[in-house]
Every structure is written in structure tokens, then in C-alpha cells.
Write a protein that binds this DNA or RNA. Sequence first.
DNA 1: AAGTGGTCTAGACCACGGC
DNA 2: CCGTGGTCTAGACCACTTC
Lengths: 263, 263
Amino acid sequence: MVKWVERATRPRGLRIRARREVQGVMPNRGEEPAYRKIQSAILRRIEAGQLKPGNLVPSERELARLHRVSLMTARHALTELARDGVVERRHGAGTFVAPPKVHFNKLLGYTEQMASLGLTAHSRIVSSGIVTREHEIAARLGLPPTARLGRLERVRLAGDDPVALEICYWSDEEYPTLANAQLDKTSLFSFLEHECGVELAYADEEIDATDADTRMAELLNIPKGTSLLRMRQLIFSTRGRATVYVTGFYRSGRHTLRIRRFR
Amino acid sequence: MVKWVERATRPRGLRIRARREVQGVMPNRGEEPAYRKIQSAILRRIEAGQLKPGNLVPSERELARLHRVSLMTARHALTELARDGVVERRHGAGTFVAPPKVHFNKLLGYTEQMASLGLTAHSRIVSSGIVTREHEIAARLGLPPTARLGRLERVRLAGDDPVALEICYWSDEEYPTLANAQLDKTSLFSFLEHECGVELAYADEEIDATDADTRMAELLNIPKGTSLLRMRQLIFSTRGRATVYVTGFYRSGRHTLRIRRFR
DNA sequence: AAGTGGTCTAGACCACGGC
DNA sequence: CCGTGGTCTAGACCACTTC
């Protein structure tokens, strides 16, 4: 097969030259691609604060020279960084570090939301156990109707005030350790991601308003009939598997969902 | 040394050939780029139903041959289509038409939402006019505190049932024609986009739950205190200008917001 | 005019997938 | 094995911005 390669399509003289050039063509056997190395180098300089938003990134030609690659390779590196929003390219002017991203529509657990506000989340577990009769939820999780589901019901606190009731469901077969996790102390998301090896990807959510029934009113310490924001989330892993189903009821006035929608 | 390299790489005879080839290098002076033509051709075949989701798209090499371009150009066309989610590329296997995209987090007006469900939207204008005392809303629209704001209050109907109350605000100075538009018959979004030459881009939204006060209860024909989903949208144009501010109150049980959030 | 990104060539070898 | 996409070369000309 090496022979086959050597039986190249060029006349002798050119072929030798071609072979020589090939020495420089892909010096990366099994290594990280050259364009990724360039990207990493730029990203490192950005993270180190050496390149700040608005600053000029080295041009394609300069990167090609610095990293000893062809223009197309340097270009590939910058094009991808631009696609990812790390840099902005302006025709005729140059490539610039993009302003820092504001994350919209980011899926965060309650613990994480509080942390992002500089607060510590507190929870009180109301009930936990295994259920087998939640056919509709089992179906949403892609499980047979009578599958064993772990179920956890927590009241979320801001200070000492109860502000939300969250009930989550998961496949007990797939995540048996979750039933015994200290979820009054740990975040469900971080347990899944760090202890169960699941990477969460996104959630499809249904949002509407309801009012508190007797039980919720008691748990949240509000009058019965008070309006609540209800969010039902079906959370998917990076492998596209429905992993957790969460229903949350949030006290009005204590919780606002912020999202961005695009035309 | 540089000279030597140049001579070595491009001896005279080759240079002339190279010049000739240049005639064919960019035969597109001022025209649409070749890679876009390839993309259009593929998109046309998809829209015509000639290529269906899952079908194999011609390979890079085949496209290069068919459109008489180099491999890199054909590749560029496919790479961009993949980035846009039109096709999926599988290393070693080929390029396939991607399954149709479900649009999440899409900004739609009420009229458009109804249309997407195959229904016709009806509205009843409750009030309309100019206000000058909505300082906070003026500020959100990036206007001076006492700017003249157009204001329109509409009840949205499903069949004969009132299901939502929507109040929108805009700069009367910028969009004076909006005040006299037949907005009981036309969609606000389509009026802005087709009559005012504004391209809408996205909306930042705040979503929570409240309950109906006396006036809302009357307008929506529901008991006072009924819980409502409240959505406040600040809608931006493609030029990044805040264009319209909308507050909507949606009857619980008659309206569910569906979104997707990412980790 | 100099420098930048955008398009493009005519190939090369490699890694992967399916028969 | 053979075809596919992924990486890469060593350049070219064009269109645009900035000076």
C-alpha cells in the first residue's frame, strides 16, 4: 500500500519535489491538529488577560508565519473562533477579540442560580422515595409506564423563607445512587454531573401559571390560591437521553425567569 | 534566499501555466461566490423535496467535479451548510440532509403563534393613544423619561374567549404611523417589519406569575385574583435598538410557554 | 499603498466507515 | 478495499479598510 501511494500521479521530477513538500504537509501524526493549537494559543492569551476584548488578534498571515503553517490553516483557526463568538472578523480591518458573552437561556439548577447571585442555596427535603405509578412522567423520560422512578420533593429557601417547591423524577434503574444522595446539601445537577458521569445538555421547558393548592400553600407558607409560576423541565443529557424531569412551583414576586428569544 | 525559494517553487514555465490557470481561479468577478452557488443548488434540491432528511448529499469530490471547483471550495460549501444545521457530516460515511429543525425560543407575535397552530388570531383594541409619563418604560426603550410613547392595549381572543391582555409601547417619534395602524386587523410584528422597515432580531423577556386585578378580571372575563402568566418583552431590532416594549398577561390553562435552555 | 480578510486552486496524506 | 470527510500546503487574486 505504501507502494500504491508512491505510484503517484506525477512525473518523476515533480514527484520528488512533492514528496519533499509532504514532509511539511502534516507534521502532526496523531497529534492535535495545527489549527487547534493556534486556537488554544489565542484562547490562552485571552484568558490570561493578555488579549482583551476589542484588541487586535494577529492576522492570518502573521499566525501562519508564527506557527509555520499555511494561510488556509491559520484562516481555519480564526474562522472557527469567529463562529464560536470568541473573535470578530472585519473585512479589510482585522480580527478582534469579541466582547465577553452574556449567557442567555442558560440551564441552571437552583443551587447554581443562587450561587450566581452570590447567595447560598438552602433546601428542605419534603419527601423522597420510589414511585411506579407516574406513567406520564415515565413516558416523558422514555421509560416503560411502570418503571421505577426516583422521586424527590424539596422546598427551596431564600434565607428562611420558602420560595419554591421542586419535585424531580429520574430512572431509579439508571441512577440508583441518587436516591441516597444528600440532596439537601448537594445540588442535583452537580451530583449527576460529578457522581453519575452524566453530562447535561439542555432542557425543554413548559412554563405557565397556576395557583397554590392546600398542600403547596402549607409548604410555601402562603395563602391557598396564591398564583405560582410553574416550570416543568425535561432535562436531556449530551447523548440525547431524557435524564431528569423536574416540576417547579415558584412564588410570584420571588422569582422571575429571564430568557431571550430570537426571531 | 527568498528569491531562491521563489524560483525553486515556481520556475518560469510553471509560472505561465499558473497565470493561465488564474483565468479559471476566480471566474466570479462580482458574481456570487462559487461555494454559495453550490449551497443554493443543494438547498434548492432539499426544498424541492428531491433530497429528503437522511439522504446522502453529493460528496466533496463529486460536488467539486460537478461544479468544476476545487475540493476546498466544495468543502467550504458543505462545512457551512453543516454549521447552519442543514446537513450533517459523518467522517468516513458521507454528508446527509439533516432532519428538519424544530425552532425553539422563537420570537413570535400572537398572530403568528395562532397561525402556526392553523388558527386565526382575533383581537379587540381596549385602548390606544399617546402617553408621556411612563418613565421606566421610556428608559427601557432607550428614550428620555418623558418621551412620547405610543400605547396600545389589546385583548387577545381564542374563538370568542378572551385569553390574554397585551399592552405595547413604542416611540411615537420613531414610528408615528403605528398609532393609526389597524392593529385590530394587522399583526404588530408584520406592521413593523413590512410598513416601518424594521427588522426585529430578538427579545429579552421577564416571566413571572401574578393575579388578575379588577380591571383585568373584567377584560378577560375571569374571577379577580385568578393567576396569570406575565411576560414582559423588550424587543430589539437587528440594529440593536430597543423598539417595542410589550407586557402580556395570559390566562392560566390557556397558554403555555415552551422554551429550551442550554447548559 | 499597505495590510486585512474572503474566495479559490490543485493537489497531498490521514483517519474513519461500510462492504 | 474504497470512498468519505478532516487536515494541510503554497501559493493566487479580489474586496475592503485605513492611512
